[in-house]
Design a protein around this nucleic acid. Structure first.
Lengths: 213, 213
DNA sequence: ATTAACCCGTACGCCACTGTACTAGTTGCC
DNA sequence: GGCAACTAGTACAGTGGCGTACGGGTTAAT
């Protein structure tokens, strides 16, 4: 039931005027921006930021939850596009490095939106929206385990958790000024590679030259 | 200013009756329990759980923030006690293993309280309350780095973040049923040890015998 | 040009929570 | 026993968000 993949036009189904589409777009943009700043941003704030009346907003999104959902979908779509442009072939460790570098930026910008979604949307919904993105890293990990580049004594699930958790933590630290933004990606990968490399194996010089941290 | 370390008796300063102390105790217990379950638990819920009138609660804690603060302090004190009973001497890696095992349980139980505090208390206040606990792990890391048991090419700060982040993530996964509670501690340490051991060094068989994960 | 879609602003009802005031009853404490 | 501390309950004011209803103006589309 509900809205199983309706993208933007949440309420009206057809005969939508160019005019309205522009509004929806503005609202969506504002929602993403506002929620990224403050996951508890009210509908009033979003409407104001979109340069639109609160009531108008309600004519496009039946409820606040609807709005958050739309913002989440939009964000995930964007993320997916970015990730699509990231090469995940070749040496698994290097691929992981690249993938982390891309993901890091996304998470850093939009973790608050996920937070808002977590609070106001059913967990199952969020999981389903994130599925494609999760799968990306998971398959990479699996491939790494098959080729022997990554250790196999840890559950895949946990490794996935570790990746996300570290990215997340770095984002938090960056927000608090405890870590410089341009260092973060390097720290994450250095930690992850060490954690995921088979015990006893020599750690390869990661990606872009032998760096110092 | 406000209340710079007043523990329980937030409002009344002296001439407190045994009667009242019992109430405060009940409220505090209820607050911890309720907030651990739901970080947005209302004052009404806490009062009810404590078997006390809402107004009575307010006569002991001026505001909701006061209540949350007290619950946080209480929790941290408990945690500190537990950590006090944990041996942090000897081989740094083994000490880390023990410390993680202890911390894990605490975090798993009380992360919601920290969450509530994060929302309603100034960040600086939280940081100061947590200071003692943080320091514990930090000094251990420093010692490990001096003895060569832990790598030195990662910032201490980041290593600290990593530890907390993984513990936290494990707690989340456990709550969602993605990880069994009795496995968590092992996963965390296995990951941490690999991540923190100097590159190229042989990973020692950790703590309680050569385990399988 | 006319029609329908769209937008705006204001205003209203609803709800949940916080914090306070007051009264009356109960209980620890000397 | 008697005072003071404590408690309960109710009631009220304030705040702030959500969702809806309307009436009048504006703008895209055919």
């Amino acid at each position: 039931m509900a809205t199983p993949s309706d993208g933007a036009r949440t309420v009206t189904a057809r005969a939508q005027r160019a005019d309205a589409r522009r509004s929806v777009e503005a609202i969506l943009g504002a929602a993403v921006a506002c929620l990224a700043r403050d996951p508890e941003a009210s509908v009033v704030e979003v409407a104001a930021a979109a340069g639109v009346g609160r009531v108008t907003l309600y004519s496009h999104f039946k409820t606040r939850a609807d709005l958050v959902d739309a913002a989440l979908v939009r964000t995930v779509e964007r993320a997916d596009q970015i990730l699509d442009g990231t090469d995940t072939t070749g040496d698994p460790v290097e691929a992981l490095t690249r993938l982390v570098a891309s993901s890091w930026q996304i998470v850093d910008q939009f973790r608050n939106i996920l937070l808002a979604a977590t609070r106001e949307l059913p967990a199952e919904r969020i999981r389903s929206v994130h599925d494609r993105i999760l799968r990306r890293i998971q398959t990479l990990i699996e491939r790494g385990q098959r080729t022997g580049a990554l250790r196999t004594d840890l559950p895949k699930r946990w490794m996935l958790t570790t990746v996300f958790s570290l990215i997340h933590a770095a984002a938090e630290d960056a927000a608090a000024g405890r870590v410089k933004v341009d260092q973060a990606s390097g720290l994450i990968t250095a930690t992850l590679v060490a954690a995921f490399t088979p015990p006893g194996a020599m750690v390869p010089a990661v990606a872009s030259g032998g760096q110092r941290l």
